[in-house]
């Protein structure tokens, strides 16, 4: 390995570590922000939560948020347009918009998943010793979610993505149930 390659390797590792340090500082800032915010909101001094956990998304109207996604991604409207308009331009434009909006919904879905997962991590982190087996489950879930979202993104990028409506309804139902669960979460407590 030449000196320039070594320097390059060292720079890459150094940049990675600097990024890690930046992330750690960012996390610290988030904690401090959370600690400053929480007491005013809940009247529990000195208690903090990780970022993104304290405000469950869409708890007020969970089903309504994902209902349009069911219809949008089922592809019935696109098929109808293709069959009845006789104008490929309109169908193509519809497809393009459908993919764009589908991505937005997917982004929302990912945000909800991460929020719930962050809460689950906090719960597992504070759990007794015998629940250590839950830690690899959390890893697996995170990995599976990333893999699945990446596959969906790939499908969206490559074109058609028609999903059976029943599956989409199940998915939305699952999110709704999770959001209900989050809204019922107990208040934070100092250890």
């Amino acid at each position: 390995m030449s000196v320039s390659l070594v320097t390059c390797a060292i720079s890459i590792v150094g940049a990675g570590l600097a990024a890690l340090g930046g992330l750690a500082l960012f996390q610290l800032g988030e904690y401090r922000g959370a600690r400053r915010r929480r007491p005013e909101e809940e009247g529990s001094p000195g208690v903090s939560e990780p970022p993104g956990v304290d405000q469950p998304p869409g708890v007020d109207q969970p089903m309504a948020r994902y209902q349009p996604m069911v219809r949008l991604l089922a592809g019935e409207d696109a098929n109808f347009l293709r069959r009845n308009t006789g104008c490929p331009k309109v169908a193509a434009r519809w497809e393009k918009s459908r993919r764009r909006i589908g991505r937005l919904y997917l982004k929302e879905l990912a945000a909800d998943f991460h929020c719930l997962h962050a809460k689950a991590r906090v719960l597992v982190a504070t759990s007794p010793e015998q629940y250590a087996f839950l830690v690899p489950i959390l890893f697996k879930q995170q990995f599976m979610f990333w893999r699945t979202v990446a596959t969906i993104e790939l499908r969206l990028a490559l074109g058609g993505w028609n999903v059976p409506q029943a599956n989409l309804r199940e998915l939305v139902g699952a999110i709704e149930a999770m959001q209900r669960e989050v809204s019922r979460a107990p208040a934070v407590t100092p250890a």
Partner: peptide, 17 residues
């Protein structure tokens, strides 16, 4: 940082995930 430990709630949450 943390919530009061509740095994049922955690397992339910993990099931949902």
């Amino acid at each position: 940082t943390g919530h009061r430990w509740n095994p049922a709630e955690t397992e339910h949450l993990l099931g949902q995930l």
